[in-house]
Structures are given as structure tokens and as C-alpha cells.
Amino acid sequence: MKTMRLWFGCVTGLAISMIFGWSYGFFVALLPIIIMTNADHWHWNGYYQLVIGIIWTTVEVSFINGFFQSSPLLLTIVVGIFFLEKCIAMSHKNSYLFGFVGLLVGSIALNFASYSSFDLEDFSITLWCSAIVTIPICALAYLLFPEPIAETAVDTTHDAQRYDHIGMIRQTALGWIIAMLAFLVFQVGDLNDSLSAQASIIIVLAPMTLIGSLAAAKIRIIGTFLGCLAGLIIQVGLYTWSDNGILFIMAYAIAAGIFCSWLALGTIKSSIAFSAMSALTVPLTTSLVPDQKDAVFAILYRFSSIFVAVVLTSMTIWVIHHFLVRVIKSPSEHFNHG
């Protein structure tokens, strides 16, 4: 039943985004997956964190962009405080989703808000709508495809939480430094078409540990390749029929069904499948314009940019992790070295 819930959530989300013509409609196809992957039963906590996290983050970004965009120094300082707030939230299990959503959405919005072609208001409203619509989509999915065997819901998200104070400080510092470096790189470079690469940096960073991030990097590359391949197959298979909404939804549903069956396993395949779903969904909803523009180049560019971003991020995380281990030591480590 979990496979059916996930499949229903992403396909329904895509259909809604197509009906309303949302510019960033891929969010409404992916947000239900984020919520339902680690929960076999309905829980309000995840939805609270998702909706409040998105609304609060977009309001913060609008405030920062409106008041500090003209002063690069002040902007950098305020963004640093913003990212620190999100990283601290991620270091606690009960607020992890709030922090992760804020860091992901905030880093994208803050960087792209500096480009005149980016409509922050449209981005924010679409995100609000996607987050709010996610609630009835998930509720309906749980109603139509309930878990047949009553089980105690176990939140397996990020079980490797930080148990020691020093470890939490290190991981918060690691997340903050990587987020700030990504922000500065995207501000200095003209990278307004690399949204997927920036999102990948935050996703690789999400475990907030060296081992977890390196594993996430491998998973991200494999999943992106599979998702891009599926997207190319859909694009080539439909060819001139890509303007047929029913055929497009059917083709997407078939590919999504395969990846959702992996998502339901709760293993490494689940993480690969999520990356595949994002790689499948984003280009087909943002770059494909029937009878005008195909998504082949966007799909190929997506894989290459994500590959480069993930490799560079992994190397940076490795360097910063070892630097933090040397700089921030627990009392026992000081004693052992003494």
C-alpha cells in the first residue's frame, strides 16, 4: 500500500500543477513523497513543519531581499544568521524537517532573488500553494491506501542524531559553512540556470555528517542518472505527442510507479528513487514546452551540473569536516591528546 500512496501522491500533485499551470509545480509532485516516505500513518507534525517552514522561510527571504539586497556586506551577514538558524533546527530531531525545508528553499530563493528574471513573489506563492495542497493529497492517499497491518509508526528519518554536544556543534558548523560557501559561489558566479545543482548541494549536506554526506553524494548521482534516463525515454517516446496531457501523465505515472516501488522499500533504493523522482519531475515540468521546446538539453545539463556540484561539495565537506575535528574538540579528546 505504501507504493500506491506514494504513486498516488506524486501523480496527483503533477496533475494539479498542470491544471493550474504553476511555474514551480514540481514541488507539489515531490512534497507528498517527502512527507509520506517515512510515515506509514497520518501524523500532523510533519505537515506543520512543512507548511510553517515554507511560509516562514519565504517571508524571511522576502524581508532579507527587500531590505539588504543593495548592501552585499549586510546581505552576507544576515544570510549567515538565516542559515545558522536553519542548521541549528536541523541538528534537532523534532525540528529537522523545518530546518531542512528552510535551508533548501531559502538557499534557492536567496540566490535566485538577486537575478532580475526571478519572480520571488510567484515562487513564494507557488510554494505556499504546493505545501497547502500537499495536506489533502496525503490525507486522501492515506484514506484510499491505508496500511493493512497496524504498526507503531517509527520515524526513521535521520536516526543517527547527534547525541553529544560537541558533535552537534561540529555538524551545525559543517552545515552552516557549506551553505554559506554555496551562497557566495552562486552570488559571484552567473549560475541562474543551476537550480538543480544548488538543491543537490543542500541534499548532499542533509545528513550533516561526513559519512552520511558521502553516501548521499553517491546516491544523488545514481538516482539523478536513472531519473534523467527515464525523462529522456518519456521525451523521445512521446515525441510530437508531448502536448497530449493524458499521454504525458500516463508516461510519467509508469516511470513514477517504478521509482515509488523503490521508495516504499525504505533502503538505499529509497534514497536513490527520491533523487530519480526529482530528476524525472523537474525538467519535464519546467523545461518541456509542447510544440516549442523539448527537455533533452535540460535533462543532460541537469545531470552534468548535479554531477559536478555533488563531487565538489563532497570534497569540500571532507576538508571542512577534518578541519572542524581538529578545531572543535571534546574534553575527552583534549585529555587523550594531552
Rank of each mutant, 00 (worst) to 15 (best):
T58N: 14
I19A: 14
S304K: 08
F27H: 09
L265R: 13
I258G: 09
L50D: 09
A199N: 04
M4D: 03
H165C: 13
S194A: 15
A217H: 02
I169E: 02
S200Q: 07
A141S: 11
L84G: 05
D40W: 00
A215E: 13
V319H: 01
V289Y: 03
R162Y: 06
Y96N: 11
S332P: 00
A139E: 08
F323H: 04
I55R: 02
I88D: 02
F274H: 00
I169D: 01
K86L: 11
I222K: 02
I272W: 04
W318E: 13
P136A: 09
H158P: 05
T281C: 11
S270V: 09
I328A: 07
I258V: 15
I64A: 06
S91P: 05
I203A: 12
A309S: 13
F82I: 12
V79T: 12
L97G: 01
L84K: 00
G223C: 08
A279D: 06
H322S: 06
A182Y: 02
L214E: 11
T286R: 02
I166M: 12
Y115K: 05
L74N: 10
I177L: 12
D164C: 09
Y252P: 03
A217C: 09
Q198V: 12
F63C: 10
L195Q: 12
L181P: 02
A89D: 10
I320R: 04
I54K: 01
G245T: 13
F20E: 06
T58Y: 04
A264M: 09
V105E: 10
F83Y: 11
A255Y: 07
A273V: 10
Q292K: 08
